[in-house]
């Protein structure tokens, strides 16, 4: 009797959420597969998925993979020393660090990307300063560099937070023990801190790589519509191109990369140590 009541209570509380999982996650994903694997008249086909091999699409995917990989590496190279410094510094009370380095992340994503447009534009701030100093203007916007810059800027906090979270949990005694046993500063970093922060690295890498790989906003705003990434191709099919089946098929291909990243997280970050929150 009691047991029964308890189950009913749990059901009532979780009911709306279960409905939401079904209606908001499950059915939409099924729809994605349905569209991706059918033609306009409803017949089964794999051509929407294999369309990724077409020259334009393959190039877009290749470029997206390249740019997002480069920006992920840059984010890691910038964020790892930062996390080490913050771990050792006395000013590293958690609230303060979270505040300073996470604040830009909460600023509207479009506005942050727009800020780089304003900086890099032909008549923009950087060129304005160059002209003022009597130097020639540079072509900055609509280049791969501008897109990578935008990716690094937009997603850097996603790398900083998980790295800092794992790093701050590493016991200082472990570091001191390594020191006592004669490890140099670099050895402490490579042999102790780096291996111990793997869960944070994996989740940071995923949290930068996935949004960078799938973006169409950054490439559109900083690439001037000339550089097409896979996200742009998909967005185009759903808005202007009006071939939803092709768009869904290409999305399925992109989801393969997302699934690989999720599998990595599940393998290396079992306790959710590297979580953003």
């Amino acid at each position: 009797m009691f047991r029964n009541k308890k189950t009913r209570y749990t059901m009532i509380l979780s009911g709306p959420y279960l409905l939401w999982i079904i209606g908001g996650t499950l059915i939409p994903l099924i729809m994605m597969f349905y569209y991706g694997l059918t033609t306009a008249d409803g017949g089964f086909t794999l051509s929407n998925v294999f369309a990724i091999a077409e020259a334009g699409h393959a190039k877009a995917l290749g470029q997206a993979l390249l740019y997002s990989a480069v920006s992920t590496v840059v984010c890691f190279v910038l964020a790892f020393p930062l996390a080490v410094i913050l771990k050792n510094s006395k000013l590293g009370t958690k609230g303060f660090v979270v505040f300073v380095f996470i604040l830009p992340m909460w600023m509207n994503f479009l506005l942050r990307t727009m800020a780089w447009q304003v900086l890099l534009e032909k008549g923009g701030v950087i060129n304005g300063v160059l002209t003022w100093m009597g130097l020639p203007r540079m072509r900055l916007i609509n280049t791969p560099g501008a897109i990578i810059m935008g990716m690094v800027y937009d997603f850097l906090p996603f790398m900083i937070m998980p790295l800092y979270n794992v790093m701050s949990k590493i016991d200082n005694n472990v570091v001191e023990a390594a020191r006592d046993l004669g490890a140099s500063g670099w050895q402490v970093i490579y042999k102790v801190l780096l291996p111990l922060s793997v869960p944070g690295i994996v989740s940071g890498v995923t949290m930068v790589f996935v949004p960078a790989l799938t973006t169409f906003v950054i490439s559109n705003m900083l690439g001037g519509g000339k550089i097409f990434l896979i996200g742009n191709v998909i967005e185009h099919e759903f808005t202007v191109g009006d071939n939803w089946h092709l768009g869904a098929g290409l999305s399925l291909v992109m989801m393969v990369f997302i699934l690989i990243s999720m599998a990595f997280i599940a393998k290396f970050d079992k306790n959710g140590e590297g979580n953003l929150l």
Binding site: S14, Y17, I21, G23, G24, T25, I27, P28, L29, M31, M32, Y34, Y35, T206, V210, P211, L213, T214, F216, G231, I234, E235, F238, W244, G247, A248, S251, M254, M255, I258, S261, M262, I265
Partner: peptide, 27 residues
């Protein structure tokens, strides 16, 4: 099982979340 389902929208790319929801609404 529920926590795994909870992670899907978090780890999924926004573009996939957006498009799949749109396809459902339209369907």
């Amino acid at each position: 099982a529920l926590l795994a389902a909870n992670n899907v929208p978090l780890l999924n790319a926004d573009i996939v979340t957006g498009i799949s929801l749109m396809l459902m609404f339209v369907a």
